[in-house]
Design a protein around this nucleic acid. Structure first.
Length: 777
DNA sequence: CAGTGAGCGAGCTTCCGCTTGACTT
């Protein structure tokens, strides 16, 4: 003890993953504890040469990445001054590995190190944890190493193969490639889908009330007709039929609340109810977490702490009354869930709303409602179905209605679904008895079409991935960004089209028919594959069926579980996987052609040469002629929105009409083309982007000049002010409004200041302050 | 930054999962 006496001696150093968590725990623990965070993993496989010594039994080569050097140094210094180090990282595979990496990298001593875990951040949970320490679980760490090594081998052997066989800089991996496959397969289903039209029959009936006002009732026929003739024939038969109540069935119904949020369900509901992208949801949730308003937002657990359940109960009792309360805990059924944390819930359940920006308030409110509702009574309903008989016809009409007897949790929150509701069942039905006659008002046969499969949104893709056990709460959002960044998939809106559907109406004695215009196929923010996504997917499916199988992750997870309990040796598990995998990579490298998705569309009428499309080094291109010794083919990039799959010969030939000269201006040519950044007009070697509404094939000289003048006016407008004494300092108008630029750095103008009235002194002051603020951070 | 696409060769790209800054005019 004497060799190192420091005034800053720390009795206990506790290390957790997240700084926000560290702050909370420090509050619970006394002065004898210093709590720090590791900011996640502090070591990873080296990037060079796989980071794995395959020959040496897959020995991992771990390094501290540059952005972690600082925190590691800081932790090392703290460790030196500490009597006891408590590794309090999460109780799952990754958390155990983080603890082990800390132990190794910080050079901890076994006698001075304890490993503790807790699933919830409450005083009790933490105190209990401190009382029952253990040591690092090597088997669990090995399971993580196996997971890490497998992912590296897959990713770093498949990606370079794609660079050779498809296009540079592409990527493949256990998770992302399967996510892309889901989207490619959905698109295939949609292409194979053939809509079928049918007629749906609904009738409106009334009670021939004596005295009181007649009540109306809408009912649907149990049978659907596949043709206009059948539907009309049915209406003919109804013309003189009598209708009566055949049966009345009343059933009690219960609805239960959904469990509290996990990362995946939060992303889904925020997408459906608030229109947030998964990235947006995560960054808003991160802010709520950091400001202490919600619990941790990356979790697969639906568990609530006893404390939370108790305080939800108090809130519900006080606000809605005892009959609305039903405390319960949910259990997780998700594949591969590791449940290191609680569900996502408000830290303080008595706060129904919070301060913050609009997005934060809305997301918080959603989380609050979902959590509270999960602890509330079931809703009780009564569902009534009335069957209506038709004289002289076997078909029946049915009307159903739901009556809410007790709202329960519905008072607070109702989960939404991805499917569009066909038609909501009506509320209260009129009081009727069996055999009551009904007056037929009208019967309508409306033409409908079967729905094509629905494309994924970001959030519904996350749902699917979670179902398959692919990816983790911390990677859903990044994975979805990656597959869009690689341009495997795009998020798009579809305007939809109009179609005419027939409506046949029986009213009084007349049967009339009319055509009704109907919008269909409208989509917002749906994911669909690009050409590259499809080509890469087909290539991987052809050569690596096992990795592309939806069950691949589930089956390796089973083995990781066996490693985690010490029943399986991790290098031999990896060996068994790697042998056949690597030889497939080898085979594909040697034998397979470059996978270009090449397709011949036809012949160029001018030259008679073949016209084809394929994936080139820079993306999809069209080509006239073939590369031979004598000649070079002509190339043109496909436009945005065009695909190898759908492009026609005419559209491909059109591409070669660009660039074209459309006239002159100020004595120079006006040339229209399509470049990397879309359609442009070039004038005096300057480029001007065309508007979305301009078509490069038809645009005229006059409009091109207008675009040029517009741009010039905007540039003129860009300069607000300059100072003679300081020519490098300018006040400019930018995309986000006025700003100051000086020495390649930009500065915001404080609120309340008019940019054109700023003096040089004031500008210098603003810059000085901003720089000072920055360096202090 | 508004091309490119033949071929050579150097050097780069890439995984999943754990975390938050850095940027944010």
């Amino acid at each position: 003890m004497n060799e190192h006496v420091s005034e800053n001696m720390i009795e206990n150093l506790v290390i957790v993953e997240s700084p926000a968590k560290a702050k909370t725990i420090e509050r619970f623990l006394g002065k004898a504890y210093t709590v720090k965070s590791s900011f996640g993993h502090i070591r990873d496989l080296a990037k060079k040469n796989l980071g794995i010594d395959i020959e040496e039994g897959f020995t991992p080569r771990y390094v501290v990445p540059v952005d972690k050097k600082k925190i590691v140094k800081e932790l090392k210094e703290l460790v030196r001054d500490s009597s006891m180090v408590w590794l309090a990282t999460d109780e799952d595979r990754e958390g155990e590995a983080i603890a082990w990496h800390l132990f190794e990298e910080l050079g901890l001593e076994k006698e001075k190190t304890r490993r503790i875990v807790f699933h919830e951040i409450t005083r009790d949970a933490i105190v209990n944890a401190l009382e029952s320490p253990r040591f690092i679980d090597t088997n669990l760490v090995n399971a993580q190493q196996a997971r890490r090594v497998l992912d590296r081998l897959v990713g770093f052997e498949l990606s370079p193969l794609l660079w050779k066989k498809v296009k540079p800089s592409l990527s493949a991996g256990r998770v992302q490639s399967v996510a892309v496959k889901l989207i490619v397969e959905k698109e295939r289903e949609i292409q194979q889908f053939r809509p079928r039209n049918y007629f749906r029959v609904t009738g409106i009936f009334s009670t021939p009330g004596a005295g009181e006002a007649p009540a109306r009732l809408k009912a649907e026929l149990s049978k659907r007709f596949s043709s206009r003739e059948e539907a009309t024939a049915f209406l003919e038969r109804c013309r003189n039929s009598r209708f009566s109540v055949e049966n009345i069935e009343t059933k009690p119904l219960k609805k239960s609340p959904a469990p509290p949020f996990t990362t995946s369900t939060l992303q889904q509901e925020a997408s459906r109810k608030l229109g947030f992208s998964v990235n947006q949801t995560m960054s808003v949730a991160q802010r709520l977490y950091e400001s202490g308003k919600i619990t941790y937002m990356r979790t697969d657990s639906v568990n609530l702490s006893k404390l939370a359940i108790g305080s939800a109960a108090g809130k519900i009792r006080a606000t809605y009354g005892e009959e609305y309360l039903k405390s319960r805990n949910f259990s997780t059924r998700t594949k591969g869930a590791q449940e290191a944390h609680e569900a996502i819930r408000p830290t303080y359940l008595d706060h129904a709303t919070i301060e913050g920006n609009r997005a934060e308030q809305r997301l918080y409110e959603l989380i609050w409602k979902r959590t509270i509702a999960s602890q509330m009574s079931e809703a009780r309903l009564e569902k009534t179905t009335i069957t209506i008989a038709i004289s002289g016809a076997p078909e029946k009409f049915a009307a159903s209605g739901e009556v809410l007897l007790f709202d329960g949790f519905l008072k607070v929150y109702m989960e939404s679904t991805d499917e569009e509701q066909e038609e909501e069942s009506s509320g209260l039905l009129p009081p009727l008895k069996v055999n009551d006659p009904l007056q037929r008002e009208s019967i309508e046969a409306a033409e409908r079409s079967t729905q094509q499969p629905v494309r994924y949104t970001e959030a519904s893709l996350v749902k699917k991935m979670e179902e398959l056990g692919i990816g983790r709460p911390s990677t859903y959002a990044p994975t979805i960004s990656t597959i869009q960044q690689r341009e495997y998939v795009v998020k798009e809106d579809r305007k939809g089209s109009i179609r005419e559907m027939m409506q046949i109406l029986l009213k009084g004695e007349d049967i009339t028919s009319s055509m009704v215009r109907e919008k269909y196929g409208y989509e917002k923010g749906k994911l669909s594959p690009t050409d590259i996504g499809t080509v890469v997917n087909n290539f991987l499916e052809q050569h690596f069926q096992n990795i592309m199988d939806y069950n691949f992750t589930a089956s390796v997870e089973k083995e990781f579980d066996e490693i985690a309990v010490g029943k399986l040796n991790w290098p031999s598990m990896i060996e068994r996987f790697y042998q056949p995998f690597h030889s497939k990579v080898d085979t594909a490298t040697r034998t397979s052609e470059r996978s270009k998705g090449e397709k011949v569309l036809g012949k160029d009428p001018e030259s008679g040469k073949p016209v084809s499309v394929k994936i080139g080094r820079f993306g999809p291109i069209a080509q006239i002629g073939e590369a031979t010794d004598q000649e070079k083919p002509r190339f043109a990039s496909l436009l945005k929105g065009q695909s190898l799959e759908h492009i026609t010969l005419e559209e491909a030939l059109d591409l070669f009409r660009l660039p074209r000269t459309i006239g002159h201006f100020e004595g120079e040519e006006l040339v229209v083309g399509v470049g990397k950044y879309g359609p442009y007009v070039r004038h005096k070697s300057k480029f001007f982007s065309l508007a979305k509404s301009d078509d490069p094939y038809t645009i005229q000289e006059e409009r091109a000049i207008e675009i040029i003048m517009d741009k010039r006016a905007r540039e003129e407008n860009r300069n607000i002010k300059q100072f003679e004494e300081e020519p490098g300092l300018q006040i400019l108008n930018g995309r986000y409004g006025p700003y100051i630029t000086f020495q390649k750095k930009n500065y915001r103008i404080p609120r309340g200041k008019k940019p054109e009235e700023l003096t040089l002194e004031e500008c210098r002051e603003i810059i000085k302050k901003a720089d000072a603020k920055k360096s202090s951070k």
